[in-house]
Simulated assay, not measured.
Amino acid sequence: MAKQTNIRLDDGIRAAAEERAKRRGLSLQGYLADLIEQDVNESRAAFMAGAQAFIASYATAFEEEFGEDRYPGLPADTTRSASRDAA
């Protein structure tokens, strides 16, 4: 469900935004909503990429410190445990 949000824009910014919206065949509201959605999605993607890089960089250290079963309550991955025990 979409919620309405009110914002205040400087006259010059509003005019420029309206022109850009018009060139894209959008209303001002649609144009601004698209910009915000794009920014949020880019921020989310950047965060996820950073989180994945962090996990990849420190996975060995975490496993050494805390062990392989980092998710209490979930069944252990018997394939990884068996292959590690065989080594």
Score class of each variant (00 low, 15 high):
residue 17 A to P: 00
residue 12 G to Q: 09
residue 16 A to E: 13
residue 29 Q to C: 14
residue 38 Q to G: 08
residue 85 D to I: 09
residue 59 A to L: 07
residue 17 A to Y: 04
residue 12 G to F: 01
residue 50 G to E: 05
residue 45 A to F: 05
residue 58 Y to L: 10
residue 24 R to E: 05
residue 13 I to M: 09
residue 43 S to V: 00
residue 45 A to P: 03
residue 66 F to C: 01
residue 18 E to M: 06
residue 67 G to M: 05
residue 8 R to T: 12
residue 2 A to M: 12
residue 56 A to T: 08
residue 23 R to N: 01
residue 31 Y to M: 04
residue 20 R to M: 05
residue 44 R to Q: 01
residue 22 K to S: 10
residue 41 N to C: 12
residue 75 P to L: 03
residue 2 A to S: 11
residue 86 A to Q: 08
residue 21 A to Q: 02
residue 55 I to E: 13
residue 52 Q to T: 13
residue 44 R to T: 02
residue 46 A to M: 08
residue 24 R to A: 01
residue 16 A to M: 09
residue 69 D to W: 10
residue 56 A to W: 03
residue 50 G to A: 03
residue 22 K to N: 08
residue 80 R to Q: 10
residue 51 A to L: 11
residue 41 N to T: 13
residue 61 A to V: 12
residue 40 V to M: 10
residue 84 R to A: 03
residue 61 A to Y: 10
residue 62 F to W: 10
residue 59 A to Y: 05
residue 71 Y to E: 08
residue 37 E to H: 08
residue 37 E to K: 06
residue 4 Q to H: 11
residue 7 I to A: 04
residue 67 G to W: 01
residue 45 A to N: 10
residue 42 E to P: 06
residue 57 S to H: 03
residue 63 E to V: 09
residue 9 L to P: 00
residue 69 D to P: 03
residue 82 A to D: 10
residue 42 E to A: 12
residue 72 P to F: 00
residue 78 T to D: 15
residue 19 E to R: 14
residue 45 A to T: 11
residue 10 D to M: 12
residue 5 T to V: 15
residue 80 R to M: 10
residue 64 E to T: 08
residue 21 A to H: 02
residue 43 S to I: 02
residue 83 S to E: 13
residue 14 R to D: 05
residue 64 E to A: 09
residue 77 D to C: 02
residue 81 S to E: 15
